[in-house]
Design a protein around this nucleic acid. Structure first.
Lengths: 133, 133
DNA sequence: GCGTGATTACTCGGATACAAGATGTCCGAGTTTGAGCGG
DNA sequence: CCGCTCAAACTCGGACATCTTGTATCCGAGTAATCACGC
């Protein structure tokens, strides 16, 4: 039960993009060396964000990643779901009746956390930071 | 990012002990076959609960596990912490200043969930269940 | 009947095997920019 | 000055290699209850 490093990388990348360059493309190389990750691995993570519609990529020279139009609305939860998936954190795959009381409690707890995360916008966080990262 | 099966087993076992036998010892064999787990594996999980002071074990014939005195106060969070550990779910081990804004948000989210789980007592849940499991 | 020892039914703990997922690397392919070069 | 070509700088995606962690098994050791047996 841990958030993956990939999620950490994704959050930091989104944070950096939001705080620094609103419309310019940023190469994966630059993003990677700031976080001390291999560029190829970070690129794997970022393609997930691309498929989730949060950022867009440009090939070729001076290419890189850039936030999409709607980036102001992107919450922590959106990013986490894009990386970790949207499946429930707790599976009572054991068969004892239609609904498991324990499962219900755990799902409610998870929803509690998700409610908080969905109110945390990346744009809010980046607003009051002069020098990002 | 998933709760482990071990946590699931631990929660169900505590639930069963709470709902069925308040003071009798229950053998790990019986507990295991209800959840379709190997007894030896379940025993490993339960020793964690013993060390956490939630249940106590009795060796020998007619031995097994039993709730301790204070079991009424045991919350979901207590059990989860006993199995998964109490470490934070999110580590920004990356070095960028003393405090990471992203880390703070994630920790707050986690605390949100933990607050809910610490209010969910196993005794409450077991109270209104006639036939446990 | 009563102690005493053996048997049985358990838990405990360490060592080990196994599987799955997270993490990270390599490489070939496609794409855009920009520079160089010839007309 | 214009257009063409070519090299450089990128991203993309799949296929691996590696590492960690969760899951599970096996086995020997210890412990308590119970049963059998002999006195």
């Amino acid at each position: 039960m841990k958030f993956s490093k990939a999620t950490n990388y994704a959050l930091h990348t989104m944070f950096f993009l939001a705080a620094a360059t609103p419309d310019k493309h940023v190469g994966v190389l630059k993003l990677a060396e700031r976080q001390e990750v291999s560029p190829t691995y970070l690129s794997k993570i970022l393609t997930k964000l691309v498929k989730a519609g949060m950022i867009e990529s440009a090939s070729g020279a001076n290419g890189g990643y850039r936030l999409k139009r709607n980036w102001e609305d992107i919450s922590f939860l959106d990013i986490i779901h894009a990386i970790e998936g949207t499946a429930s954190l707790f599976d009572c795959d054991f068969n004892h009746g239609p609904d498991c009381l324990i499962q219900k409690v755990m799902v409610s707890a998870e929803e509690e956390m998700e409610a908080y995360l969905s109110n945390q916008k990346m744009s809010e966080l980046a607003r009051n930071v002069p020098a990002p990262l």
